[in-house]
């Protein structure tokens, strides 16, 4: 009877029968921070999140998707841009950060203003300088779209097109973006007989002595906020983490960035002021200024600030940094628009 009944029905219910996906836990990574039990990743949710990521509808003028500033080939940064431009010609005030391995982080943005991955997209989506949209408008636009009308019920049990499910779908897409198959990874995990060259090994030695106290773990960040003594750009006057808590101790502090795919994520620093890795290392060697709150770990024994590096050491370090490039991730079709 029941079967006959449903066959006769003119409007068959779209059934929620998700295919669950596993978020990777690479052996050399810290533990996943995201609470997956609240938002288990499914193929349908991932597909929905990817569609949202590449959809201009999330912006006020329907033409600035998330992917506008986050291009896969550059580890989801905005290729070559120091700062990015958004709707109505607005210019953001920080360099677009890479998107990878976000499952293993607990705070997001250069200043940690988002303390949950689900909530992070609200910042660019609502910023007048970036996507200039409101969540309610996005909900209305998606409700009028036939793809989303059919995809939300496949991705979520309640099938609702609301802010909860939009944000959960975006998280599902982002959680799957794991970059863990660089030359370095294969080397430390003893996979495929991968070895580092002499110069890369020398670079690794310098890195461990001079960089890894902040760029710690195999994510290459201790996820702390530090002031590295960058000369202040008066035009932007970006006080960094100070904006979050208005705590004077946080002045000019920014999140220690992960160095994964760092070869591809140029330009560098929170405002993209350095175009090359050489420029970054030159700054650490001789460009730091005492702006009142520089991290103590960057103080030399003579009281000046900086990390002394010879020209040869810089070359060796850069060779090692390039072993973090993960071409499998950068070319992974699961994350590609087409």
């Amino acid at each position: 009877m029941a079967i006959l009944w449903s066959c006769d029905s003119d409007s068959p219910e779209i059934s929620y029968t998700p295919t669950y996906l596993q978020v990777e836990q690479p052996a050399n990574f810290p533990e996943i921070q995201y609470n997956l039990s609240n938002n288990p990743v499914t193929q349908e949710g991932f597909d929905l999140g990817k569609a949202l990521f590449y959809d201009g509808k999330l912006s006020a003028n329907n033409s600035i998707p998330c992917a506008f500033c986050h291009e896969q080939a550059f580890a989801f940064t905005h290729h070559g841009h120091t700062l990015s431009h958004g709707v109505n010609g607005g210019i953001g005030f920080r360099n677009s950060q890479p998107m990878q391995n976000l499952a293993y982080f607990s705070e997001f943005m250069w200043d940690g203003a988002a303390s949950h991955l689900d909530l992070q997209p609200i910042i660019p989506l609502t910023s007048e300088l970036e996507m200039g949209e409101t969540l309610s408008n996005v909900v209305d636009k998606l409700k009028a779209d036939t793809y989303y009308q059919s995809q939300f019920p496949l991705a979520f049990d309640d099938g609702e097109i609301n802010s909860e499910n939009i944000l959960k779908a975006l998280s599902q897409f982002m959680l799957m973006m794991v970059s863990s198959n660089s030359k370095y990874d294969k080397y430390v995990r003893n996979e495929e007989g991968v070895t580092l060259t002499e110069v890369e090994l020398q670079g690794q030695n310098i890195f461990e002595n001079k960089c890894s106290s902040c760029h710690a773990t195999d994510l290459f960040t201790d996820q702390s906020y530090r002031n590295t003594g960058l000369p202040i750009n008066a035009k932007l006057d970006d006080t960094g983490r100070f904006k979050v808590l208005e705590n004077p101790e946080d002045l000019y502090k920014f999140k220690v960035p992960s160095l994964r795919n760092v070869e591809k994520t140029f330009p560098y620093m929170h405002d993209g002021r350095f175009a090359t890795l050489t420029a970054v290392l030159n700054f650490y060697d001789s460009g730091m200024v005492d702006n009142g709150n520089v991290d103590e770990s960057l103080k030399r024994s003579d009281g000046s600030f900086g990390i002394s590096l010879t020209e040869n050491e810089k070359v060796q370090l850069i060779a090692f940094l390039k072993t973090f490039t993960d071409n499998e991730f950068l070319n992974d079709t699961r994350f590609a628009e087409y």
Partner: peptide, 18 residues
Amino acid sequence: RFQKGADGQGNLLAEAQE
């Protein structure tokens, strides 16, 4: 509740933003 992110919040975030 805040640390759940979007989970279990329905359209609250959109309403709060509005």
